[in-house]
Amino acid sequence: MFAKKNRTERTAEEAWEHLSSAWASAGDSAGKAGRQGRRLASRAGDRVTSVTDEALIRATAAADALAGRRPGRPWALIAGVGLLGAALGWVAATTARAALERQAENEEIELAETAVVVTPTYDDH
């Protein structure tokens, strides 16, 4: 009745151990960063804060992944790309319309220049 753990369970346990360790080290880093930040210049404090923030973001993402939650969609990026695409489409349509108008004008001028006017003559015999 003692079933061996399957590969998925072992992987989940290892991931949880790594996550717990990362979370703990992020907390330790935050504490150390707070103490060192007061003693060091603002440049060093900013660097430590950014590293701590990155560790916290990664640990949170790992916890969400282990819990089965998917990351949110970057709606601002999607909207920005959509607006950029709309602007580029408008520019392309305007340019194509102007090119077609120029082509039509040129064809009309060419037809006018090469047109042969035939006038009928009436001979009274």
Results as ranks from 00 to 15, higher is better:
Phe2Gln: 06
Phe2Asn: 07
Phe2Cys: 03
Ala3Thr: 03
Asn6Thr: 03
Thr8Lys: 12
Thr8Ser: 10
Glu13Ile: 00
Trp16Thr: 07
Trp16Glu: 05
Glu17Lys: 03
His18Asn: 08
His18Asp: 05
Leu19Asp: 00
Leu19Glu: 00
Ser20Tyr: 00
Ser21Arg: 05
Trp23Ser: 05
Ser25Val: 12
Ala26Asp: 01
Ala26Met: 01
Ala26Thr: 01
Asp28Glu: 10
Ser29Ala: 10
Ser29Phe: 02
Ser29Gly: 08
Ala30Val: 02
Ala30Gln: 07
Gly34Thr: 15
Arg35Tyr: 06
Gly37Tyr: 02
Arg38Thr: 09
Arg38Val: 10
Arg38Phe: 07
Arg38Lys: 13
Arg39Ile: 11
Leu40Glu: 15
Leu40Gln: 15
Ser42Trp: 04
Ala44Leu: 02
Ala44Phe: 01
Gly45Phe: 01
Gly45Asp: 02
Asp46Thr: 12
Arg47Thr: 05
Val48Thr: 13
Val48Asn: 12
Val48Pro: 09
Thr49Trp: 09
Asp53Cys: 04
Glu54Met: 08
Glu54Ile: 01
Ala55Ser: 08
Ala55Thr: 02
Ala55Asn: 12
Leu56Asn: 06
Ile57Arg: 15
Arg58His: 03
Thr60Asn: 05
Thr60Leu: 07
Ala61Trp: 04
Ala62Phe: 06
Ala62Met: 13
Asp64Tyr: 03
Asp64Gly: 08
Ala65Thr: 04
Leu66Ala: 02
Ala67Pro: 03
Ala67Leu: 06
Gly68Trp: 00
Arg69Tyr: 00
Pro71Glu: 01
Gly72Ser: 13
Gly72Trp: 10
Arg73Tyr: 14
Pro74Asn: 06
Leu77Thr: 15
Ile78Pro: 12
Ile78Tyr: 11
Ile78Val: 15
Gly80Pro: 14
Gly80Ser: 15
Val81His: 13
Gly82Asn: 15
Gly82Glu: 11
Leu83Tyr: 11
Leu83His: 11
Leu84Glu: 04
Ala86Val: 09
Ala87Trp: 06
Ala87Met: 07
Val91Asp: 01
Ala92His: 07
Ala92Ile: 10
Ala93Pro: 05
Thr94Leu: 11
Thr94His: 08
Thr95Ala: 11
Arg97Ile: 10
Arg97Val: 11
Ala98Arg: 13
Ala98Ser: 11
Ala98Lys: 13
Leu100Met: 06
Glu101Cys: 04
Ala104Lys: 03
Asn106Pro: 08
Glu107Tyr: 11
Glu107Met: 14
Glu107Pro: 07
Ile109His: 05
Ile109Tyr: 01
Ile109Asp: 03
Glu110Tyr: 14
Glu110Thr: 15
Glu110Leu: 15
Glu110Asp: 14
Ala112Ile: 12
Thr114Glu: 14
Ala115Ser: 12
Ala115Pro: 05
Ala115Ile: 06
Val116Lys: 06
Val117Pro: 04
Val118His: 00
Val118Arg: 01
Pro120Gly: 14
Tyr122Arg: 10
Asp124Pro: 05
